[in-house]
Amino acid sequence: MTPAQTLPMAASDRRLLVLVGIVLLALVTLPWLGSALIVDKLIYLFILVMFAVMWNLLAGYAGLVSVGQQAFIGLGGYALVRLVEAGLPPFPTIFLAAALTGVVAWALSWFMLRMKAGEFAVATWVIAETIRSIVMFDPIVQGETGTSLLALNAYDPDLRRMVLYLLSLGSMVVMVGGTWVLLQRRIGAESQAIRDDEDAAASIGISTFQVKQRIYIIASVGCALAGALWLASAITFQPRTSFGVQWSVFMLFMVLVGGIGTFIGPILGALLFFALQEIFGDFGAWYLAGIGIVAILFALYLPRGLVGLWLDRGRDEPLSLRKRLRLRE
């Protein structure tokens, strides 16, 4: 029996990738043309995309539903503030902060990944609260007051914005592309097997703990990097904001509405969430309550999100990670 042949990428997907390439080229040139406001907003959009893609990797592909990724968002920001305070240059330190947070995630993973589903979810939240309480003991954070990344004020605002914009854009492209490559590889199939049935996955020889640990660390470093970038653009570090559970609600909303466990879903979700925030953000609490209600409705009635709607109409999932096989006649 000859093995089935895998087909190359669909023509529509290739067209989509060309389009994405053009958009990215346009985005690279944008800061020289666009206004400061637009650049700032786009930095936030890139950060949202990173959060969504990382949470989808964790929950959608490895089945690790965390409501405590704000632990790493906050830690990334805190590490940046701490290291810059110690005299390191701000921009390269963003990446160092993310790497250091990865070490924390590695240490936590031994403990966290032994829990299941709901227990894991609440425990991640408790860990985030615990880390926040510990960080608040640091004298430079001054408890609830927080602190600012004053070292950034030494740079010209336009230069600072430009550098941050390009760093965020680059990080986003690396994260989205890296996720694509990662999920195409063996670990992608393994993590999905674990998500669907952990015992069955273990019984066919997958080192379930190791796979979950890798995904957990990657997703945490990703969140820390996005968190550090967000802090660098927001400048002020406040423990309640950086470690706030609202990040988890945002991530969940973007991934759920876009389509959990699909590649393109979280990116669509992030774009939609960004648009909603621009349009309805002024309504404050009512807007956030609405976000919660929409999340409930999607979870109950459209759990596969917008991509699910697309699939229901009999179309192929764009940029699907599923392998397409040619059937032998």
Binding site: G118, V249, L252, Y287, L288, A289, G290, I291, G292, I293
Partner: peptide
């Protein structure tokens, strides 16, 4: 259930 109840929490808090 996890997604639903965290959405419910956000809706309740802000509501």
């Amino acid at each position: 259930p996890i997604l639903t109840t965290i959405g419910l929490g956000a809706a309740l808090q802000n509501g």
